[in-house]
């Protein structure tokens, strides 16, 4: 709640300075004057009261007597309540000033409520009492719209802030995850070793083998995560296409011609040079050789 004082504002100090400036004795730096201007908001005011201002005390009281209502007028006519202000309000402190005014109003309402209740008169309007309001519905719609917009703005800002923080946190989280994974793996290996030892000690050597296999398979599977056989090192499709082919057996024929298959066979993306190099896997891979071909060759030789 910012109150903007309308009209220009000049401090009393400045007013005083002005008098001095005529003979150029007083030197006020511009910045000083400006800061004063901002500080003394109320400053349309003389420092000292002017001497020759009129104050006709009798006249005022006389007039007051003339216009005032009879003493015994019921409170219902006036509806006025006096509230004592605890402390002097600093006018330039917007927040405190508004608070003081608000508390005055609230206190007044409470007192009035007590009075109304004791008199048995209605106070607030019942909820089903509809009548013309001071502000039109149109206007209130606008007010509501503004409130909603503000709320939305705040929420959006909050979201943005959260996203930013998450981004910051992301790296740490990632590092944490890797660490955890490594730890888990280590633990598993450890537990297997321990278990194996126990088995050996207790003498179940036959069954041991099968169990071992099961565990080793698990380990092997983990390893395969890193490097899949039959996938070129530069293949960014990760050999997924080949797996996909294996999954859908019904549509296997169709898919062989599909993009996925081609990608898996010839590779997709990545550096070409790396893909075309032989690796240990490819040299050991004998899938490309056809056994029947070799038999034909033999026949031909004969």
């Amino acid at each position: 709640m910012v109150v903007v004082k309308d009209g220009p504002i000049v401090s009393d100090e400045e007013a005083a300075n002005h008098d001095g400036m005529e003979d150029l004795d007083v030197e006020v730096s511009e910045s000083e004057a400006e800061s004063e201007e901002e500080d003394d908001d109320d400053a349309v005011k003389l420092v000292e009261p002017s001497k020759n201002s009129i104050y006709n005390r009798e006249g005022l009281l006389d007039k007051l007597g003339d216009i005032s209502w009879p003493e015994d007028v019921g409170w219902l006519h006036k509806l006025s309540i006096d509230i004592h202000q605890e402390q002097e309000v600093d006018v330039n402190d917007d927040l405190n000033r508004e608070l003081a005014l608000y508390t005055q109003a609230l206190e007044g309402t409470r007192q009035a409520f007590v009075k109304f209740e004791s008199m048995g008169r209605p106070f607030l309007r019942p909820t089903d009492y509809y009548a013309e309001m001071v502000k039109s519905d149109n206007h209130m719609e606008k007010v509501k719209g503004r409130l909603l917009a503000e709320k939305r703005r705040i929420e959006e800002a909050e979201e943005r802030r959260k996203a930013r923080e998450n981004k910051k946190m992301g790296k740490q989280v990632q590092a944490q995850k890797l660490k955890e994974r490594a730890k888990q793996k280590k633990e598993e290996v450890e537990s297997v070793k321990k278990w194996r030892k126990q088995r050996q000690q207790s003498g179940f050597s036959e069954k041991d083998g099968t169990m071992e296999l099961a565990f080793e398979e698990g380990n092997a599977f983990e390893r395969s995560n890193k490097r899949r056989p039959g996938v070129a090192p530069g293949d960014r499709s990760g050999g997924k296409a080949r797996q996909g082919v294996g999954k859908g057996k019904k549509g296997a024929d169709k898919k062989r011609k599909g993009r996925d298959f081609k990608d898996s066979k010839f590779g997709f993306g990545g550096k070409k040079g790396l893909k075309k190099q032989n690796t240990a896997d490819t040299t050991n891979d004998l899938r490309g050789f056809n056994k029947s071909d070799s038999s034909k060759n033999l026949k031909r030789k004969r």
Binding site: R57, I81, H84, Q85, G108, R125
Partner: peptide, 26 residues
């Protein structure tokens, strides 16, 4: 953001420093 009935009688609250000087009283 407030709104009230058009024509309901207002409560008047005054701070007590209105009761000091005669001009404030007036």
């Amino acid at each position: 953001t407030g709104n009230h009935l058009n024509g309901s009688r207002p409560l008047l609250t005054f701070s007590t420093n209105f009761d000091g000087n005669p001009h404030w009283k007036l």
